[in-house]
């Protein structure tokens, strides 16, 4: 026991001095260098040490974050994946799958994790993976992608790439690995995006048919659209995503429509919804097929947001 404590304190010392080095050199990233013992996550205190060894990830954003940081060996189970992994994050052997949907608490605990990392706050509930309090009392740490915090005081006022970088460095700190390479890559991707200057307006059509569910003013859709030079017609709604009305869409007659492609509501289904409704069939974007496509898993804030923006910018440039 004493020896164990010794190792821990030496490790802490080493980590501390490394952190000190990091702060003395010009910081390449907003890395959380002070040796805090806990991080605040959607208003919930999460102990920092020791670095998690056995992680259950819920939703694609959390899985992909760990893969992007080279932490695939720490994942003991994935659940509720929104779609296939992007090519650059594919693993040689498939990751273990606990459940197609939100796993129950018992399934999560059976995997014996020391961290459950979820893409949505609502994944932690009594009828889901268990509440954060419950899991904490069993010694299991929990972490929610901060962009998905729902309480007003913790939700990003308006999501920026800095928020996403902060999640990357926070996770890197937690696992005691470096975020520098990933963050540098993200910044390079963003730098490479040629912003469209035509002043085009856009609808981000996420799901729904009678009542469209669209990207609103403060979440990842708005961030991506702003990055590539599109003006979101639903930007005035102070929410990440929101229910909208076809009448408002028609009144705005957007120049392009971003279609979110998912297995349950594919881009083709969305196109047929738009074309079969006589009122929306006459929209400029529908008549001229001015569509941009984004996979659902890339449409939520995470390591794919920059790539999604770059991809959509390329598609947009190809639209006359």
């Amino acid at each position: 026991m004493l020896r164990f404590l010794g190792t821990v304190s030496i490790a802490a010392l080493v980590a501390g001095s490394l952190a000190a080095c990091a702060t003395s050199t010009p910081a390449a990233s907003p890395s959380n260098a002070d040796s805090k013992s806990t991080i605040e996550n959607c208003g919930f205190e999460v102990p920092m040490s020791p670095p998690p060894q056995r992680v259950v990830t819920i939703k694609s954003t959390s899985t992909e974050m760990l893969l992007a940081l080279g932490l695939s060996d720490r994942i003991v189970g994935t659940a509720f994946q929104d779609g296939p992994l992007p090519e650059n994050l594919e693993t040689p052997t498939p990751l273990p799958v606990l459940a197609d949907k939100v796993p129950s608490e018992e399934v999560v605990l059976e995997a014996n994790p020391d961290l459950v990392y979820a893409g949505w706050e609502s994944n932690f509930s009594v009828d889901g993976a268990g509440t954060r309090e419950d899991l904490a009392s069993l010694g299991v740490r929990t972490y929610v992608s901060p962009a998905a915090c729902k309480e007003p005081q913790f939700q990003p006022k308006k999501l920026t790439f800095d928020d996403i970088e902060q999640e990357i460095s926070q996770i890197a700190d937690l696992f005691d690995v470096s975020a520098d390479e990933l963050i540098a890559k993200q910044r390079a991707t963003l730098k490479g995006i040629a912003k469209d200057t035509r002043g085009l307006t856009a609808l981000w059509f996420s799901s729904g048919s009678d009542i469209p569910y669209v990207g609103a003013g403060i979440g990842a859709p708005e961030l991506i659209m702003q990055t590539i030079g599109l003006k979101n017609i639903a930007a005035s709604i102070d929410d990440t995503w929101a229910s909208y009305s076809w009448e408002s869409v028609i009144a705005a007659d957007p120049d392009v429509i971003v279609l979110v492609d998912s297995s349950w509501n594919s881009k083709d289904k969305k196109i047929s919804i738009l074309e079969s409704n006589p009122a929306t069939a006459n929209l400029t974007a529908v008549k001229e097929h001015r569509y941009l496509i984004v996979p659902f898993a890339a449409s939520e804030a995470g390591v794919r947001t920059a790539d999604a923006a770059a991809d959509l910018a390329r598609q947009l440039a190809a639209i006359p």
Binding site: D82, D100, K101, S206, S207, G208, S209, D210, I211, Y213, S243, S245, W246, S262, S263, W264, N265, N277, P278, F296
Partner: peptide
């Protein structure tokens, strides 16, 4: 799956949004 519950919820609560 995903957020497809939203559509069915709207219908179960009663909605005239699909009226044509």
């Amino acid at each position: 799956t995903g957020d497809s519950y939203r559509e069915i919820l709207g219908w179960l609560l009663g909605s005239l949004a699909s009226a044509r």
